[in-house]
Amino acid sequence: MGIDIPKRSYSGAIRTITVGKGEKSFAVGGETAYPFYTFEGEFPNAPRFGLNILDIEPEGWAESLLEVYGDVVKDPAAWAKKCVDDFGADIIQISLQGTDPNDKNLSAEHAVEVVKAVAAAIDVPLSVWGTANIEKDTEVLRAVAEAMDGKRLCIGPVQEANHRQIGAAALAYKHIAVASSPIDINLAKQLNVLLGNLGVTDENILIDPTVGGLGYGLEYSYSVMERARMAALSQQDDRLQFPLYCNLGVEVWKTKESKLPDHENNLGEAKPRGILMEAVTATSLLAAGGDIMIMRHPEAMKLAKQLSKEMLAS
């Protein structure tokens, strides 16, 4: 019997953005259908998976994270190298937690020094992430952008309140602005318009929709991302036709459930629980349209990458 399976026709496509420079640079985006709807469109670039390191030795991290990385967490360059060499990260995100003015308040010079050392240690693209403090990020990320002139880093979070300063630095030194908005499709769009007005071209923008971890607001991010994809692909909203950058590792691994000891509160073994918490978050965000997934546990990354590969298999 004939089955009446609806087929959508899409009117838009996600832009293709090239991240990084040199042999290990990669393209993301380019998809012409909803996430993994390979029966309706093209997916020239599979989602990419990165690991998230810090500029300072982590405090309060879950045991399974510290265990998997070992001593390298004391040295960002060695840490980044291990993420690439041992765990196969496509991209490294260094979060400049040490520069947080509410904490250690390390200088922009410190940030530049660490970023340079990390960049020298790896051949994959690098993303540099601030603390979301408007003033401090402006100072730190501008200095980093300048010092890394022409390397096509991802630089974020670029927020509405500092998009002029950081956007201009990204523009001047040829980096990619990761436009970050607080789980709101209209604000995401607005920020991309503002960046465009500033002169940041469409080849240099990624959207950070702000993601919530599993059990901590995942549903909001999920729907904002789905709606952004629908607007981009079905409603020709060209200000939302950018790949989605999901900074999920930090969100998952700050939850209390990711850190509780074995079997507490019926939560099973701590290590696989944390890994699955991150991998299930990634699975959901992939289903909603994530293109770059920044994670923390190599095992979780491996699982999510495997899933993505299977769903795009020809």
């Binding site: 999920y222 939560l267 073994e269 629980r273 299930v280």
Partner: peptide, 16 residues
């Protein structure tokens, strides 16, 4: 069902 798989899937289900 172990805590590590069930809890996470239940959370996802709750969210979705």
């Amino acid at each position: 069902f172990q805590g590590q798989n069930l809890f996470n899937l239940l959370l996802e289900r709750l969210n979705i």
